[in-house]
Design a binder for these strands. Structure first.
Lengths: 154, 154
DNA sequence: TCGCTGACTATGGGTGACCATAGCCAGGAA
DNA sequence: TTCCTGGCTATGGTCACCCATAGTCAGCGA
């Protein structure tokens, strides 16, 4: 069983998809461990530079570089803020593009929870307390499995 | 706005989550570009070694190593097969754990399609032709946003 | 004005991921 | 028996990513 391919996708020979595949572009832009862990931390509400570095468990040099890249690609922005009696500082916050990474983050958490050894947090809906899962659905509301998914040229 | 954290997660100071986070474990196991692109290719129906290497656009040495790792962590298995008049060969196929990566793959494709420059395939439901999206839903059927998601200790 | 703190930048070095090229091995085909 | 092909393994080198340590810089507090 596989995803079905239509159009040019179906006919390609052994030609790599390369940067023609949006997944590849995503991975090139933000597809390293540290960047994704930083995004996770920002989802968790961390916004300050030193806290981000410590919580991700990475040196400040690396945190600075990855955060700069995340700002460059438009996943995060720096917002000046000031605590009373403190000087102005920069907070890292998610942009709309960053918030759109939520399914990626949760899908990675979900797979790790199911298929790796170790503890995992429960993911629940604040409104009703039911467990939350990442799903594929079509606009008509059907749950879509691997066999029901078709990729075609736009 | 952020994901709300409950239990020990809420109280941690600047302690890194490290391998206590299933997302981190996922990224350590399969979180490199080549591995994820190989998984994508297998979802697309490619199963032979040389086709996988060529289509992902990676050298055979690297393909061999990544495929070996994917087999080790249980995402892929090797299945012997034989075309008529050919000798027995190995096909790489997804295990159940591998198939569970579908939301990860589609989430990455979806983000790249929305937020990077370039072409992107349409993702449609074979049954009804409607576009497919990755969503967060609770067991009661509610669509869950960032603000409605709570992570708590298991 | 001096020092402290948060937010970085700089330097040197290790490891892992990747490439290109070359070689190995099993097993049908000739 | 030799050749060819698919499926790897081996070697040597580059580059990205990471660490640890140390330094810089801005601005508030005293």
């Amino acid at each position: 069983m596989a995803i079905s391919l239509a159009g040019r996708l179906a006919e390609r020979g052994d030609v790599p998809l390369g940067t023609g595949c949006p997944m590849d572009r995503t991975l090139r832009a933000i597809g390293n461990r540290t960047a994704l862990l930083l995004v996770r931390e920002v989802f968790y509400g961390t916004s300050r530079f030193d806290a981000l570095a410590k919580r991700v468990g990475v040196s400040e040099a690396v945190a600075a570089q990855r955060l700069r890249e995340l700002v460059e690609v438009g996943v995060l922005t720096k917002e000046p803020y000031r605590d009373p009696g403190q000087r102005t500082r920069q907070a890292y916050v998610l942009t709309d593009a960053g918030r759109d990474l939520l399914p990626v983050v949760v899908a990675l958490v979900q797979w790790g929870a199911a298929h790796t050894e170790g503890t995992a947090p429960r993911r629940t809906h604040v409104g009703c307390g039911e467990p939350v899962e990442v799903e594929l659905r079509c606009a008509a509301g059907h749950v879509v499995g691997e066999a029901d998914l078709e990729l075609g040229t736009a």
